[in-house]
Amino acid sequence: MGLGGSILQAEYTLIKRIVMVFFFSVTTPSGIALGIALSKAYKENSPAALITVGLLNASSAGLLIYMALVDLLAADFMGPKLQGSIKLQMKCYIAAFLGAGGMSLMAKWA
Rank of each mutant, 00 (worst) to 15 (best):
A48Q: 09
A48D: 09
A48N: 05
A48R: 02
L50Y: 01
L50C: 02
L50E: 11
L50W: 01
I51A: 13
I51V: 08
I51D: 07
I51R: 07
T52D: 03
V53M: 15
V53N: 07
V53C: 08
G54L: 03
G54N: 08
G54H: 04
G54S: 03
L55Y: 03
L56D: 09
L56R: 08
L56C: 15
N57P: 00
N57D: 11
A58E: 15
S59L: 12
S60L: 04
S60Q: 06
S60Y: 01
A61E: 11
A61Y: 13
A61F: 07
A61M: 07
G62D: 07
G62Q: 09
G62N: 08
L63D: 09
L63K: 04
L64Q: 06
L64I: 12
I65M: 15
I65V: 15
I65L: 15
I65N: 12
Y66N: 13
M67P: 01
M67Y: 13
A68V: 07
A68S: 08
A68Q: 09
L69F: 09
L69S: 10
L69E: 10
V70H: 08
V70L: 03
D71E: 11
D71I: 05
D71M: 10
D71F: 14
D71Y: 14
D71H: 14
L72A: 08
L72I: 13
L72W: 08
L73A: 12
L73C: 09
L73R: 10
L73F: 15
A74T: 13
A74H: 13
A74Y: 12
A74C: 04
A74D: 15
A75H: 07
F77P: 04
F77I: 08
M78K: 09
M78E: 12
M78D: 14
G79E: 02
G79R: 14
G79F: 02
P80F: 03
K81T: 14
L82K: 02
L82T: 06
L82G: 01
Q83H: 10
Q83N: 12
Q83T: 08
Q83R: 13
G84C: 02
S85C: 09
S85Q: 10
I86Y: 03
K87R: 02
K87S: 02
K87P: 00
L88T: 08
L88Y: 05
L88F: 05
L88S: 12
Q89G: 05
Q89T: 06
Q89R: 14
M90W: 02
M90K: 13
M90Q: 10
K91D: 05
K91G: 00
K91L: 08
K91S: 03
K91N: 05
K91C: 01
K91M: 06
C92S: 15
C92N: 11
